[in-house]
Protein backbone atom coordinates (compact mmCIF):
# COMPACT_ATOMS: atom_id res chain seq x y z
CA UNK A 1 0.00 0.00 0.00
CA UNK A 2 3.05 2.25 -0.05
CA UNK A 3 1.76 3.48 -3.36
CA UNK A 4 -0.85 5.52 -1.55
CA UNK A 5 1.76 7.97 -0.31
CA UNK A 6 3.57 8.22 -3.60
CA UNK A 7 3.56 11.68 -5.08
CA UNK A 8 2.41 10.27 -8.40
CA UNK A 9 -0.81 9.00 -6.85
CA UNK A 10 -1.71 12.29 -5.22
CA UNK A 11 -0.67 14.31 -8.23
CA UNK A 12 -3.09 12.18 -10.27
CA UNK A 13 -5.75 12.60 -7.61
CA UNK A 14 -5.52 16.35 -7.85
CA UNK A 15 -5.49 16.30 -11.62
CA UNK A 16 -8.60 14.11 -11.67
CA UNK A 17 -10.25 16.30 -9.04
CA UNK A 18 -10.00 19.38 -11.26
CA UNK A 19 -13.10 18.89 -13.45
CA UNK A 20 -15.24 17.79 -10.49
CA UNK A 21 -14.13 20.79 -8.45
CA UNK A 22 -14.69 23.25 -11.28
CA UNK A 23 -18.26 22.16 -11.75
CA UNK A 24 -18.93 21.78 -8.03
CA UNK A 25 -17.83 25.36 -7.36
CA UNK A 26 -20.46 26.60 -9.77
CA UNK A 27 -23.04 24.20 -8.41
CA UNK A 28 -22.28 25.38 -4.88
CA UNK A 29 -23.23 28.90 -5.85
CA UNK A 30 -26.28 27.70 -7.75
CA UNK A 31 -27.55 25.66 -4.82
CA UNK A 32 -26.76 28.44 -2.37
CA UNK A 33 -29.01 30.58 -4.54
CA UNK A 34 -31.69 27.88 -4.53
CA UNK A 35 -31.25 26.26 -7.92
CA UNK A 36 -30.77 22.52 -7.82
CA UNK A 37 -29.15 21.80 -11.16
CA UNK A 38 -29.74 18.16 -12.02
CA UNK A 39 -28.88 19.32 -15.51
CA UNK A 40 -25.27 19.88 -14.51
CA UNK A 41 -24.60 16.54 -16.16
CA UNK A 42 -25.88 17.99 -19.42
CA UNK A 43 -24.07 21.28 -18.93
CA UNK A 44 -20.79 19.43 -18.49
CA UNK A 45 -21.51 17.27 -21.51
CA UNK A 46 -22.22 20.29 -23.65
CA UNK A 47 -18.97 21.82 -22.44
CA UNK A 48 -17.08 18.68 -23.30
CA UNK A 49 -18.54 18.59 -26.78
CA UNK A 50 -18.02 22.32 -27.25
CA UNK A 51 -14.38 22.03 -26.24
CA UNK A 52 -13.70 19.13 -28.56
CA UNK A 53 -15.55 20.74 -31.46
CA UNK A 54 -14.03 24.20 -31.16
CA UNK A 55 -10.56 22.82 -30.51
CA UNK A 56 -10.90 20.60 -33.53
CA UNK A 57 -11.97 23.48 -35.76
CA UNK A 58 -9.52 26.04 -34.49
CA UNK A 59 -6.71 23.62 -33.83
CA UNK A 60 -6.10 25.33 -30.50
CA UNK A 61 -7.10 23.84 -27.16
CA UNK A 62 -7.20 27.20 -25.43
CA UNK A 63 -9.76 28.44 -27.90
CA UNK A 64 -11.56 25.14 -27.41
CA UNK A 65 -11.56 25.64 -23.67
CA UNK A 66 -13.00 29.13 -24.07
CA UNK A 67 -15.61 27.78 -26.47
CA UNK A 68 -16.66 25.22 -23.90
CA UNK A 69 -17.05 27.86 -21.22
CA UNK A 70 -19.11 29.95 -23.62
CA UNK A 71 -21.30 27.00 -24.60
CA UNK A 72 -21.80 26.25 -20.93
CA UNK A 73 -22.71 29.84 -20.18
CA UNK A 74 -25.28 29.97 -22.98
CA UNK A 75 -26.88 26.67 -21.98
CA UNK A 76 -26.72 27.66 -18.32
CA UNK A 77 -28.62 30.81 -19.22
CA UNK A 78 -31.20 28.80 -21.19
CA UNK A 79 -31.56 26.43 -18.28
CA UNK A 80 -32.02 29.48 -16.10
CA UNK A 81 -34.74 30.79 -18.38
CA UNK A 82 -36.68 27.59 -17.74
CA UNK A 83 -36.17 27.14 -14.01
CA UNK A 84 -35.71 30.76 -12.93
CA UNK A 85 -37.81 32.88 -15.26
CA UNK A 86 -40.50 30.33 -16.16
CA UNK A 87 -40.39 28.80 -12.67
CA UNK A 88 -40.37 25.32 -14.14
CA UNK A 89 -39.82 22.42 -11.78
CA UNK A 90 -36.10 21.99 -11.35
CA UNK A 91 -36.01 18.21 -11.20
CA UNK A 92 -38.19 17.79 -14.27
CA UNK A 93 -36.27 20.29 -16.35
CA UNK A 94 -33.02 18.66 -15.27
CA UNK A 95 -34.14 15.23 -16.45
CA UNK A 96 -35.40 16.62 -19.75
CA UNK A 97 -32.36 18.82 -20.28
CA UNK A 98 -29.94 15.94 -19.76
CA UNK A 99 -31.82 13.83 -22.28
CA UNK A 100 -31.78 16.64 -24.82
CA UNK A 101 -28.08 17.39 -24.42
CA UNK A 102 -27.20 13.71 -24.60
CA UNK A 103 -29.12 13.38 -27.86
CA UNK A 104 -27.98 16.67 -29.33
CA UNK A 105 -24.25 16.21 -28.68
CA UNK A 106 -24.37 12.75 -30.12
CA UNK A 107 -26.20 13.97 -33.23
CA UNK A 108 -23.88 16.93 -33.65
CA UNK A 109 -20.79 14.77 -33.32
CA UNK A 110 -21.88 12.48 -36.14
CA UNK A 111 -23.40 15.28 -38.16
CA UNK A 112 -20.52 17.73 -37.97
CA UNK A 113 -17.61 15.37 -37.63
CA UNK A 114 -18.55 12.31 -39.64
CA UNK A 115 -14.91 11.39 -40.03
CA UNK A 116 -14.04 12.06 -36.42
CA UNK A 117 -12.67 15.11 -34.72
CA UNK A 118 -9.16 16.24 -35.28
CA UNK A 119 -7.51 16.31 -31.94
CA UNK A 120 -5.10 19.22 -31.73
CA UNK A 121 -2.12 19.19 -29.46
CA UNK A 122 -3.33 19.49 -25.89
CA UNK A 123 0.11 20.43 -24.67
CA UNK A 124 -1.01 23.89 -23.56
CA UNK A 125 -3.16 22.22 -20.91
CA UNK A 126 -0.61 19.59 -20.00
CA UNK A 127 1.37 19.64 -16.82
CA UNK A 128 3.68 22.59 -16.37
CA UNK A 129 6.03 22.53 -13.47
CA UNK A 130 6.10 25.81 -11.61
CA UNK A 131 9.55 27.29 -11.02
CA UNK A 132 10.83 27.10 -7.41
CA UNK A 133 7.61 25.72 -5.93
CA UNK A 134 7.82 22.74 -8.19
CA UNK A 135 11.20 21.88 -6.74
CA UNK A 136 9.83 21.23 -3.29
CA UNK A 137 10.06 17.57 -2.38
CA UNK A 138 6.77 15.62 -2.63
CA UNK A 139 4.63 18.78 -2.29
CA UNK A 140 6.16 20.23 -5.41
CA UNK A 141 5.47 17.08 -7.37
CA UNK A 142 1.94 16.78 -6.08
CA UNK A 143 0.78 20.38 -6.15
CA UNK A 144 3.00 22.34 -8.49
CA UNK A 145 3.53 20.08 -11.44
CA UNK A 146 -0.01 20.29 -12.75
CA UNK A 147 -2.16 21.55 -15.57
CA UNK A 148 -2.81 25.31 -15.69
CA UNK A 149 -6.45 24.44 -14.94
CA UNK A 150 -5.39 23.14 -11.55
CA UNK A 151 -3.41 26.31 -10.91
CA UNK A 152 -6.49 28.33 -11.81
CA UNK A 153 -8.42 26.36 -9.22
CA UNK A 154 -5.85 27.23 -6.57
CA UNK A 155 -7.01 30.80 -7.07
CA UNK A 156 -10.64 30.15 -7.87
CA UNK A 157 -11.49 28.13 -4.75
CA UNK A 158 -10.36 30.69 -2.17
CA UNK A 159 -11.94 33.35 -4.31
CA UNK A 160 -15.20 31.42 -4.14
CA UNK A 161 -15.02 31.38 -0.35
CA UNK A 162 -14.31 35.10 -0.30
CA UNK A 163 -17.10 35.85 -2.73
CA UNK A 164 -19.65 33.80 -0.85
CA UNK A 165 -18.95 35.00 2.67
CA UNK A 166 -17.24 38.35 2.40
CA UNK A 167 -18.99 40.25 -0.36
CA UNK A 168 -22.38 41.72 -1.03
CA UNK A 169 -22.74 39.36 -3.98
CA UNK A 170 -22.27 36.38 -1.70
CA UNK A 171 -24.74 37.81 0.76
CA UNK A 172 -27.31 38.20 -1.99
CA UNK A 173 -26.73 34.66 -3.25
CA UNK A 174 -27.14 33.17 0.20
CA UNK A 175 -30.19 35.28 0.97
CA UNK A 176 -31.90 34.33 -2.28
CA UNK A 177 -31.44 30.64 -1.59
CA UNK A 178 -32.35 30.73 2.05
CA UNK A 179 -35.41 32.94 1.83
CA UNK A 180 -36.46 33.72 -1.69
CA UNK A 181 -39.79 35.23 -0.73
CA UNK A 182 -38.28 37.24 2.09
CA UNK A 183 -35.56 38.50 -0.24
CA UNK A 184 -38.12 39.43 -2.84
CA UNK A 185 -40.12 41.33 -0.23
CA UNK A 186 -36.94 43.11 0.80
CA UNK A 187 -36.60 44.44 -2.72
CA UNK A 188 -34.00 42.00 -4.01
CA UNK A 189 -34.41 40.91 -7.61
CA UNK A 190 -34.34 37.20 -6.96
CA UNK A 191 -34.70 36.04 -10.58
CA UNK A 192 -31.90 38.31 -11.73
CA UNK A 193 -29.49 36.92 -9.14
CA UNK A 194 -30.48 33.35 -9.88
CA UNK A 195 -30.01 33.95 -13.60
CA UNK A 196 -26.47 35.27 -13.10
CA UNK A 197 -25.68 32.34 -10.87
CA UNK A 198 -26.90 29.97 -13.56
CA UNK A 199 -24.65 31.64 -16.12
CA UNK A 200 -21.68 31.22 -13.80
CA UNK A 201 -22.71 27.65 -13.04
CA UNK A 202 -22.97 26.92 -16.77
CA UNK A 203 -19.60 28.52 -17.48
CA UNK A 204 -17.83 26.50 -14.82
CA UNK A 205 -19.64 23.31 -15.80
CA UNK A 206 -18.64 23.96 -19.41
CA UNK A 207 -15.04 24.44 -18.32
CA UNK A 208 -15.29 21.23 -16.31
CA UNK A 209 -16.49 19.38 -19.39
CA UNK A 210 -13.64 20.88 -21.37
CA UNK A 211 -11.18 19.66 -18.77
CA UNK A 212 -12.67 16.18 -18.94
CA UNK A 213 -12.32 15.93 -22.69
CA UNK A 214 -9.13 17.91 -23.30
CA UNK A 215 -7.07 16.83 -20.29
CA UNK A 216 -8.48 13.57 -18.96
CA UNK A 217 -9.56 12.07 -22.28
CA UNK A 218 -6.72 13.44 -24.37
CA UNK A 219 -9.04 15.38 -26.66
CA UNK A 220 -11.25 12.53 -27.79
CA UNK A 221 -14.96 13.11 -27.44
CA UNK A 222 -17.24 10.10 -27.19
CA UNK A 223 -20.99 10.04 -26.63
CA UNK A 224 -22.01 10.50 -23.01
CA UNK A 225 -18.43 11.34 -22.10
CA UNK A 226 -19.38 12.82 -18.73
CA UNK A 227 -20.98 9.53 -17.73
CA UNK A 228 -22.52 10.49 -14.41
CA UNK A 229 -19.80 12.79 -13.10
CA UNK A 230 -22.42 15.54 -13.03
CA UNK A 231 -24.33 13.55 -10.45
CA UNK A 232 -21.12 13.12 -8.48
CA UNK A 233 -20.84 16.89 -8.52
CA UNK A 234 -24.35 17.21 -7.11
CA UNK A 235 -23.59 14.75 -4.34
CA UNK A 236 -20.29 16.43 -3.56
CA UNK A 237 -21.85 19.89 -3.39
CA UNK A 238 -24.43 18.68 -0.93
CA UNK A 239 -22.34 16.63 1.41
CA UNK A 240 -19.69 19.35 1.42
CA UNK A 241 -22.40 21.52 2.96
CA UNK A 242 -22.29 24.15 0.27
CA UNK A 243 -18.88 25.42 1.31
CA UNK A 244 -16.23 25.78 -1.42
CA UNK A 245 -13.48 24.68 0.96
CA UNK A 246 -15.14 21.38 1.81
CA UNK A 247 -16.06 20.97 -1.83
CA UNK A 248 -12.37 21.19 -2.74
CA UNK A 249 -11.45 18.60 -0.14
CA UNK A 250 -14.21 16.27 -1.30
CA UNK A 251 -13.17 16.68 -4.92
CA UNK A 252 -9.62 15.60 -4.09
CA UNK A 253 -11.01 12.51 -2.37
CA UNK A 254 -12.97 11.68 -5.50
CA UNK A 255 -9.84 12.28 -7.50
CA UNK A 256 -8.03 9.86 -5.25
CA UNK A 257 -10.73 7.24 -5.71
CA UNK A 258 -10.42 7.75 -9.45
CA UNK A 259 -6.64 7.58 -9.31
CA UNK A 260 -6.73 4.22 -7.57
CA UNK A 261 -6.92 2.54 -10.94
CA UNK A 262 -3.50 3.95 -11.90
CA UNK A 263 -1.77 2.30 -9.01
CA UNK A 264 -3.98 -0.75 -9.06
CA UNK A 265 -1.72 -2.69 -11.37
CA UNK A 266 1.24 -2.19 -9.14
CA UNK A 267 -0.64 -2.78 -5.91
CA UNK A 268 -3.08 -5.52 -6.71
CA UNK A 269 -1.27 -7.11 -9.60
CA UNK A 270 -4.14 -6.56 -12.00
CA UNK A 271 -6.47 -9.08 -10.41
CA UNK A 272 -9.16 -6.58 -9.65
CA UNK A 273 -11.56 -5.88 -12.54
CA UNK A 274 -11.61 -2.31 -13.79
CA UNK A 275 -15.29 -2.00 -12.92
CA UNK A 276 -14.37 -1.82 -9.26
CA UNK A 277 -12.27 1.27 -9.85
CA UNK A 278 -14.88 2.87 -12.05
CA UNK A 279 -17.36 2.29 -9.28
CA UNK A 280 -15.09 3.64 -6.57
CA UNK A 281 -15.94 7.37 -6.73
CA UNK A 282 -19.67 6.61 -6.63
CA UNK A 283 -19.24 4.26 -3.68
CA UNK A 284 -17.19 6.92 -1.98
CA UNK A 285 -19.90 9.52 -2.61
CA UNK A 286 -22.54 7.19 -1.22
CA UNK A 287 -20.45 6.49 1.85
CA UNK A 288 -19.89 10.20 2.35
CA UNK A 289 -23.64 10.74 2.15
CA UNK A 290 -24.31 8.10 4.75
CA UNK A 291 -21.81 9.72 7.08
CA UNK A 292 -22.82 13.31 6.46
CA UNK A 293 -26.42 12.88 5.44
CA UNK A 294 -28.35 14.05 8.41
CA UNK A 295 -26.14 16.78 9.68
CA UNK A 296 -26.22 19.15 6.79
CA UNK A 297 -28.84 21.83 6.52
CA UNK A 298 -29.73 22.71 2.98
CA UNK A 299 -30.58 26.22 1.84
CA UNK A 300 -34.28 26.48 2.69
CA UNK A 301 -35.45 27.30 -0.79
CA UNK A 302 -33.24 24.82 -2.61
CA UNK A 303 -35.20 23.46 -5.55
CA UNK A 304 -38.25 25.59 -4.93
CA UNK A 305 -39.32 27.97 -7.68
CA UNK A 306 -40.03 31.51 -6.51
CA UNK A 307 -43.71 32.23 -6.88
CA UNK A 308 -43.88 35.97 -6.40
Amino acid sequence: MHNLVESFFWASAIALAAPILLAALGETFAQRAGVFTIGIEGLMLSGAFGAAAVASWSGDVIVGFAGAALAGAVLGALYGVAVVLFRADQVVVGIGFNLIVLGATSMLRRGLFPTGMEVPSTSALDRHELPLLGDLPWIGEVLFDQSPIVYALYVLTPFGVFLLFRTRVGLLVRAVGDGALASSAAGIRVPRIRMWVMVVNGTLAGAAGATLVLVNAGGVFVDNLVDGRGYLVLALTMFARWHPGWVALGAVLFGAADALQFIAQATFGGHVPTAVFLMAPYLLALAAWVVMGKRSRAPSDLGVPLLA
Partner: peptide, 16 residues
Amino acid sequence: HQLIPSLTVAESIALA
Protein backbone atom coordinates in the same frame (compact mmCIF):
# COMPACT_ATOMS: atom_id res chain seq x y z
CA HIS B 1 -41.37 38.07 9.23
CA GLN B 2 -39.59 38.53 5.98
CA LEU B 3 -36.22 37.66 7.39
CA ILE B 4 -33.77 34.96 6.52
CA PRO B 5 -33.03 32.79 9.55
CA SER B 6 -29.54 31.71 8.50
CA LEU B 7 -28.16 35.24 8.18
CA THR B 8 -26.77 37.26 11.06
CA VAL B 9 -28.36 40.50 12.22
CA ALA B 10 -25.62 42.54 10.57
CA GLU B 11 -25.93 40.60 7.33
CA SER B 12 -29.68 41.11 7.27
CA ILE B 13 -29.30 44.84 7.57
CA ALA B 14 -26.51 45.00 5.02
CA LEU B 15 -28.64 42.97 2.65
CA ALA B 16 -31.55 45.38 2.82
